[in-house]
Amino acid sequence: MKNKLSSGGLVYSTEAGRMCPACRQPVAQCVCRKTSAAPAGDGIVRVSRETKGRGGKAVTLVKGVALDAAALVALGKQLKSACGSGGTVKDSVIEIQGDHVEKVMTALKAQGHTVKRAGG
């Protein structure tokens, strides 16, 4: 019986860290992410609050921003400083620690984005 692990590939290397599953390069030197364009969306930025899987702590999520990776990181940095909080950018979603939905929505509207509150 053959081993079915051949379809998975290397995920982490102690030498290079996290590996890209598509191009099999370290994430820092990933070729496929640089060539991909900004994610296509409907032009509406959705801001929501989530606590699932975070030990009950609230996180503000910003989804649907049609920017490339570098501009998304810069926008995340602006929003984090406006809220006075930490956060990160993962998979084209800006995560800001804490419940800052209203602050984030006003900051995005001031920059000219169409913003909607998502979730409850």
Rank of each mutant, 00 (worst) to 15 (best):
M1D: 07
M1N: 02
K4W: 08
L5W: 11
L5M: 13
S7M: 05
S7A: 10
S7D: 10
G8W: 09
G8F: 15
L10D: 06
L10I: 13
V11S: 12
V11N: 07
Y12P: 04
S13E: 09
E15Q: 13
A16N: 13
G17R: 07
G17D: 10
R18M: 14
M19K: 02
C20G: 08
C20M: 07
P21W: 02
P21M: 04
A22F: 14
C23L: 09
C23F: 05
C23R: 04
Q25N: 12
P26R: 05
V27C: 08
V27D: 02
A28Q: 13
Q29A: 15
C30E: 07
C30V: 07
K34M: 09
S36P: 00
A37N: 04
A37E: 13
I44S: 06
I44G: 04
I44V: 15
R46Q: 08
R46N: 07
V47H: 02
S48K: 10
R49E: 07
E50Q: 11
K52H: 11
G53F: 08
R54D: 01
G55F: 05
G55P: 05
G56R: 08
A58S: 12
A58C: 00
V59D: 00
L61A: 10
L61F: 09
L61Q: 13
V62G: 02
V62E: 01
K63D: 12
G64E: 06
V65P: 06
V65E: 04
L67P: 10
D68K: 08
D68M: 02
D68Q: 08
A69V: 11
A70R: 15
A71W: 03
A71H: 11
A71D: 12
A71L: 06
L72E: 12
V73I: 13
V73A: 14
A74N: 08
A74Q: 14
G76V: 08
G76F: 10
G76M: 07
K77E: 13
K77N: 13
Q78R: 15
K80G: 13
K80M: 15
K80H: 06
S81L: 12
S81H: 07
A82N: 10
C83K: 02
C83E: 02
C83V: 07
G87I: 09
G87H: 05
V89Q: 04
V89L: 12
V89H: 07
K90I: 14
K90M: 11
K90C: 10
S92C: 04
V93W: 03
I94P: 09
I94A: 03
I94K: 05
I94N: 06
E95D: 00
E95T: 01
I96H: 01
I96M: 02
I96L: 12
Q97L: 14
Q97F: 14
Q97N: 14
V101G: 00
E102A: 13
K103C: 06
K103D: 03
V104Y: 01
M105I: 08
T106V: 09
A107C: 03
A107L: 01
A107S: 11
K109V: 08
K109C: 01
K109S: 11
A110Q: 10
Q111I: 01
G112K: 04
G112N: 02
H113V: 00
V115D: 03
K116C: 05
K116S: 11
K116F: 05
R117H: 08
A118C: 00
A118L: 10
G119P: 03
G120L: 09
G120V: 04
